[in-house]
């Protein structure tokens, strides 16, 4: 059993284990970061910590600029990144035994596995992959 926070990326439903989430925050004061890369929207003050806000849809290459006012603050294990997302509303309880690897031809980016929920498919985000991509970007 695992608790998964669901959110939307494009037309797909993505999921993230709540173990990776520090907190969900609403309408944070966003600070502009000079010379920031395209996926770095800005920075916020989170209980005294300065955290970078990453535009997750843009990073994963989803078209459209629909962004939610809710942001996900990850745990320090994931460098305390802040993701802008959409449709953050529910936390669902899933049996992780039913998690399947992405089938061949599955072209969604950064998917660790897929799992069915109420006749829809939740793509479980590969947080390591996202972190790796960010490292690649900012290492340059």
């Amino acid at each position: 059993m695992a608790l998964i926070l669901t959110y939307s990326l494009g037309n797909d439903l993505y999921g993230l284990e709540i173990d990776a989430i520090q907190e969900i925050i609403e309408n944070p004061v966003l600070h502009y970061v000079p010379r920031a890369e395209g996926v770095l929207t800005g920075s916020i003050n989170f209980h005294g910590q300065i955290l970078a806000v990453i535009d997750l849809p843009k990073l994963l290459g989803f078209a459209g600029n629909q962004r939610d006012h809710r942001h996900l603050v990850l745990t320090s294990e994931y460098r305390s990144l802040v993701f802008t997302t959409c449709g953050v509303e529910r936390i669902v309880n899933l049996e992780m035994e039913f998690l399947q690897p992405p089938p061949d031809g599955h072209d969604r980016p950064a998917v660790r596995g897929i799992i069915d929920f109420n006749e829809t498919t939740i793509n479980l985000l590969d947080t390591d992959e996202v972190t790796k991509q960010l490292e690649d970007i900012f290492a340059e």
């Binding site: 608790l3 520090q22 969900i24 529910r90 936390i91």
Partner: peptide, 17 residues
Amino acid sequence: AQKTNLLALNATIEAAR
């Protein structure tokens, strides 16, 4: 209601922790 929803979500996260 939205605030409550957010609080509930964060509460769930805290509870899980």
